[in-house]
């Protein structure tokens, strides 16, 4: 049987798993190197590259704007996406499947094209400020996650629960807040995490929407990497990994391990 006890399968799998984890571990190791170029094995231990991060104004302001944009984009995707999903799953809408695909369609467009097209249309033609354009672009990245995850949990939720609320004297609007939202809480948090992380990490859209006073963190790191080759990039990579782990930990605390991985 090809089960978890099969030796060949286990060996192959552990090697692949190691290949997945090893590169990230190497990044962590190089971040402490005393040499000013990135190399292995390391010759000594220092934290100076971490302090160098904070000498880079692009990293500090980039982190701030990435954080703000990711927050606004994720929350607006939830606020706009959840009612749409509710309408699609709870009202008898004609062409519900069509609407569903329409809302998911931004995933079909390459991100680099979304960035480029939106930059032309919103920033150049419609003269929308770059910051707003950035949020709109990130909103488009987030919306499909909201639609997909919330739809799945709305379909799983017994619709009779909501009906029981109405029978108890609760109007539809009130029932949405008192009964539906609390019961899809886990998927709202999961959707928020996916939106936030993907927005925070995005490069293609952010690349186009940048201005003299507005750079996002990932493009700043990319830019630094192309001009310098020192362990500062390793150090900020480690901070980003800690940030990711922290997000996962918080979500795990909020909704449990089961809901993140499935």
């Amino acid at each position: 049987m090809l089960d978890r006890k099969n030796k060949t399968l286990t060996v192959i799998s552990i090697i692949i798993l190691a290949l997945i984890m090893l590169p990230l571990i190497l990044v962590v190791i190089t971040s402490f190197n005393t040499q000013s170029s990135i190399s292995l094995p390391i010759t000594g231990f220092t934290l100076s590259w971490y302090s160098n991060i904070f000498q880079q104004p692009d990293f500090i302001s980039g982190f701030e704007s990435s954080l703000i944009v990711a927050l606004i984009a994720s929350i607006s995707a939830l606020v706009i996406g959840i009612p749409a999903v509710y309408a699609l799953t709870r009202y008898n809408i004609h062409h519900a499947a069509w609407f569903q695909s329409f809302f998911l369609s931004p995933t079909l467009i390459p991100e680099i094209v979304i960035g480029f097209a939106l930059y032309q249309a919103a920033v150049i033609t419609m003269r929308i400020p770059v910051f707003i354009g950035l949020i709109v672009g990130h909103f488009l990245l987030c919306l499909p996650y909201v639609i997909r995850l919330i739809t799945a949990s709305m379909l799983l939720m017994d619709s009779h629960i909501e009906e029981a609320g109405w029978i108890c004297g609760c109007s539809r609007k009130k029932g949405f807040f008192l009964i539906v939202l609390p019961n899809i809480k886990a998927s709202i948090i999961a959707a928020f995490m996916m939106c936030f992380i993907n927005s925070f990490n995005n490069i293609p859209v952010s690349l186009f929407m940048s201005g003299p006073s507005l750079t996002m963190l990932p493009p700043s790191i990319l830019n630094y990497l192309q001009n310098n080759y020192d362990p500062t990039v390793s150090a900020i990579s480690v901070l980003l990994m800690i940030f990711t782990a922290l997000m996962m930990f918080l979500v795990e605390k909020a909704i449990g391990i089961k809901n993140i991985t499935e």
């Binding site: 017994d158 629960i161 029978i167 108890c168 109007s171 539809r172």
Partner: peptide, 20 residues
């Protein structure tokens, strides 16, 4: 009269208790 103003009681097959 809308459902929430009818003042009926209903027991569902799935019980439909509020899980939260």
């Amino acid at each position: 009269v809308p459902v929430y103003k009818r003042n009926f009681g209903m027991v569902f097959q799935s019980y439909a208790l509020f899980p939260h």
